[in-house]
Design a protein around this nucleic acid. Structure first.
Lengths: 353, 353
DNA sequence: ATTAGCACTCAAAAACAAAGAGTGCTAATT
DNA sequence: AATTAGCACTCTTTGTTTTTGAGTGCTAAT
């Protein structure tokens, strides 16, 4: 019993019909789909064999057939035709890609939203793989005796700032010296090292100066912390409520809750390829067992990678989703590429997160 | 036909029973609730009159009674007992109120999340009432010939910063002069005025300097824009999926979509009182017609107000929700109060939004 | 004014009865 | 040997009818 060419065609027709309708598809429908030069009885025989081989499943004896995960896998690997993006689609995406440059987090979250709109499925987006963060440069700007503007530049060239207040008055003239101390002693350190260093110099420093140093370091630690925290942004989770497979409130709310959970283990791409399709049970986390995930990654700067994942029912339009997601991910990569800057401002800027 | 004391007791019992069970409540249940010294027949008569007066409704003839919005209103106004917060509750909230000081937006969004967890209903949170924003102070810090750190302080004392790049090289020595120009000419202006001013000085300024000025002003405009945009944060919208009144997917998804819509007109408090309860049809927007909203406000600094709203079914536990929300709003106000600063850093800081 | 008693109503649940889509198999056809 | 027509069989879906039971409204007694 082998996979003849016709069987493949049948499988393809079934997958595509089922993707479109979410209804089990019967032999007659397939026959029509294939142009009518084979009868439904023939198809029926082939379908029986495809079932036996594990590519199709039957909800119950007298229903049509539904692709099994194995069937989808074959479809995705061999049968699926590359979806050609229409002019309208690319234009829409290009428009979306003109994201006005802002904080990194916001861009990433926005990207997720766009993809969700584009695909009509929920998405998640995040940036991963940052290396250890440290401060590269400190600046202090005098405001008044009790307030100083602190500007901090991280090792990946982001700049953040804030007002730092101190209980003990400080004079404008003292600031340069303090800034020098900060730049000499506190650059290149991790947060915990900074705290330690702060301890070690507490002895031989004037109280007023130490107060300010301490507040500044505290601020810097906050900046590093929030920069290191890789937040997961989800978008469009409630779109699943439109899907027939999630008419069941409990199922829907379970998935929504999983997606909204910050701790959720969401599929990543492996380093080898920029795109990955996970079908139903191929997902590790049980909450995704009967959903599929298409996930793509793109480079952000040198040692960071952005990730966008689309979550949908196993009956997902893989071709279209994959095409759009891949196009969009490419666009994001270009956006972060050194060369093409979309506005006068620089992409690396992403001040204030 | 008047509202006797017993009728009120009956109404109260019905409201509370219905809040707890979401099932129409019958005369017998009320009789038991009231201690059994009146018979169910008596209750029945009273219930008939309460129906006639419009405080109760009947889903159908042979079902129990359900409070009408008018009934809830009476309950909220007169019958409801102040919910006493338990020690555990206040402790939990106090813990939540130790929000580590960060950007304003994040605090507000966090607050919404906490309240959502606390009440188990969806919430929305926002900060409103900012006046026109302008820049109060500019600083420029030299990085290299093509990059400058721009630090901008807004009229409400927030500080933001970012790297600004320019195509034409600039020397460190030129920066102070440019900063002076910025501080002299561009402070106190709205974004559109800034653009205009930029035009007007384009003639008598060196190209290199103008380039940088322009990029800096562009950056400042972005800062003001995003500061002025009052974002609405919603949290826990999917909690409504747990409510029996939203077993119907379409109804649920309609409400969820409404809440997720950035443009949605959500109820505010009026200036007179810090708390407001809107019951069902009292809501203006039709999407909320059969939900209730409890909304509380708190002061943030001098001319801003924070707002947290809890959205739930009309059958909402008003007493508990109101008590918790009010406590939390007070906590938030204290948090923003000048005196009690939870950390060494200052609340006004909220750099980088 | 209250209450017991009872007939009546009506939604919800259960039980039952087609209807129809789709299969699997057999036997005929190419 | 592969294909196809034909047909009995299966099982969900859909619609209809029955049954059940909570709850009411009214009447008559307390």
């Amino acid at each position: 019993m082998e996979l003849t060419e016709r069987k493949k065609k049948i499988l393809k027709a079934i997958v595509e019909d089922y993707i479109a309708t979410a209804e089990p598809v019967g032999s007659k429908a397939v026959a029509k789909q294939l142009g009518g030069n084979v009868s439904s009885a023939t198809i029926r025989n082939d379908m029986a064999e495809l079932s036996e081989m594990g590519y199709l499943e039957q909800p119950h004896t007298s229903a049509g057939r539904v692709p099994s995960p194995k069937g989808y896998r074959l479809y995705v690997n061999e049968l699926m035709e590359q979806h050609r993006l229409s002019r309208a689609e690319t234009e829409k995406m290009n428009a979306a890609l003109h994201i006005k440059m802002q904080e990194l987090d916001r861009i990433i979250s926005k990207a997720g939203q766009y993809v969700s709109n584009l695909t009509e499925y929920p998405t998640y987006a995040l940036a991963a793989g940052k290396s250890r963060m440290s401060v590269k440069r400190f600046d202090l700007l005098y405001v008044d005796a009790l307030s100083v503007i602190t500007v901090v530049m991280t090792n990946d060239d982001r700049v953040k700032s804030g007002i730092v207040r101190t209980q003990i008055g400080i004079e404008a003239e003292q600031l340069p010296a303090l800034a020098t101390v900060l730049n000499k002693e506190f650059t290149g350190l991790t947060t915990s090292d900074m705290s330690q260093k702060l301890m070690s110099i507490s002895q031989h420093t004037l109280p007023a100066a130490f107060m300010l140093l301490s507040a500044t370091v505290d601020f810097a630690e906050g900046v590093l912390d929030s920069a290191a925290r890789a937040e997961i942004f989800t978008a469009g989770t409630n779109r699943i409520l439109n899907l027939p497979e999630y008419r069941d409130i409990d199922k829907a709310s379970q998935l929504i809750n999983y997606l909204s959970d910050d701790e959720a283990q969401l599929p990543m791409t492996d380093d080898s390829s920029p795109m990955k399709i996970l079908i139903g049970p191929e997902n590790v986390s049980s909450a995704l067992r009967d959903t599929s995930v298409v996930v793509a990654s793109y480079d952000i700067g040198d040692n960071m990678r952005g990730l966008i994942g689309v979550v949908g029912p196993v009956r997902m339009d893989y071709a279209t989703v994959a095409a759009r997601l891949s196009y969009f991910a490419d666009g994001m990569a270009r956006l972060f590429g050194k060369n093409e800057l979309p506005t006068g401002r620089d992409d690396k800027e992403d001040n204030n997160k």
